[in-house]
């Protein structure tokens, strides 16, 4: 034996050493893992419990109509019915609803990008009488529950003949959302003042400083704002419910809620439609997680 191993090819012994090294890394990793094994066990079980609803929605969306009402229910469909997704698109105006939501997201995002940095710049950088009072007023509007404004705003938009259009759903964002203004003010305050002063000495005016220096440096805050605008607009329910009446103009949130009454037994199709509706949000979440979580932990903004 010993002779045999001694006579082994040099390459083999290198492979052996390499294997041994890997094994020892593995054992230390394993030891570390089992030390916290109980914790990991709890985390995995909890994660499963949290994900079962989504997984169940997914497997339901792949079942046939017979399979969804079988008792006892089966976990997986016999043959995954990927066609359900195509059927969901064909049967419900899902594409239309999602397009409507996307339009609302884009107009709101445009409004916020135009208004918020401008307003925040005044609070963060410019000196003017009444600044403290106005800033406190702006902050206090964040505390006012929105429902008290619903009826007067509805009657105002109704007098203007704008009920049934997208105007009530997008117009307010062109006048600045106080949460985003506050976020942007906080961010702009962290940008060194030397930058603006140097630019001012070089002859740059107020607006040049904002759009050439401050705004480009505030892009992280702008990103957080855009992510939340997407999330809030996509998920908003009560405003489109109140203002829109034409089925074809519904955004996905309201459209989805109305399927329920119309096709209440086709749960497989229904779960496919619901899953499709949350895919844009999930994609956004996976790509912008850092910005989202940053916004939540600094401001306590809710998802």
């Amino acid at each position: 034996m010993s002779l045999n191993s001694g006579a082994a090819h040099p390459n083999d012994s290198f492979a052996d050493i390499d294997r041994q090294l890997r094994r020892s890394n593995l054992t230390t990793a394993l030891r570390r893992l089992t030390g916290n094994g109980f914790l990991y066990f709890i985390m995995v079980v909890l994660a499963l419990i949290f994900m079962i609803p989504l997984l169940w929605m997914f497997t339901t969306s792949l079942k046939t109509r017979q399979e969804i009402f079988v008792w006892p229910p089966t976990w997986l469909p016999d043959v995954p019915q990927w066609g359900n997704y195509a059927d969901a698109f064909a049967k419900y105006p899902l594409a239309r609803f999602m397009f409507n939501s996307a339009v609302l997201v884009m107009i709101n995002a445009l409004g916020e990008v135009i208004s918020v940095p401008l307003i925040a710049y005044a609070f963060a950088r410019l000196r003017f009488p009444g600044k403290r009072i106005l800033f406190i007023m702006m902050l206090s509007t964040m505390m006012i529950p929105g429902q008290i404004k619903l009826i007067p705003l509805f009657s105002m938009f109704s007098r203007l003949g704008l009920v049934g259009t997208y105007w009530p759903l997008v117009l307010p964002s062109f006048f600045g959302n106080p949460f985003f203004i506050f976020l942007m003010v906080q961010y702009m305050r962290t940008i060194p003042r030397d930058l603006d002063e140097a630019a001012r000495i070089d002859g740059a005016g107020t607006w040049t400083i904002l759009y050439r220096i401050i705004l480009p440096l505030s892009l992280p805050a702008v990103t957080v704002m855009l992510v939340f605008t997407f999330l809030w607009t996509w998920n908003d329910f009560i405003s489109p419910l109140i203002y829109l009446s034409d089925f074809n103009s519904y955004p996905i949130s309201v459209g989805l809620a109305f399927f329920q009454g119309r096709y209440s037994v086709e749960w497989n199709m229904f779960m496919a439609a619901t899953l499709i509706s949350i895919i844009p949000v999930l994609v956004l979440y996976f790509f912008a997680q850092r910005h989202l979580i940053g916004g939540i932990s600094t401001l306590g903004l809710k998802g």
Binding site: F50, M57, I68, N235, F237, M271, T274, Y285, F286, I293
Partner: peptide, 28 residues
């Protein structure tokens, strides 16, 4: 990442999902 996912999903989608999960006879 996993635990935060539910917080980004719309109230409508969450409601429809739970309506199906909590069906008295065929719910999971």
């Amino acid at each position: 990442t996993v635990f935060y996912i539910p917080a980004v999903i719309s109230g409508v989608a969450v409601s429809l999902m739970w309506m199906w999960l909590l069906q008295p006879d065929t719910g999971v």
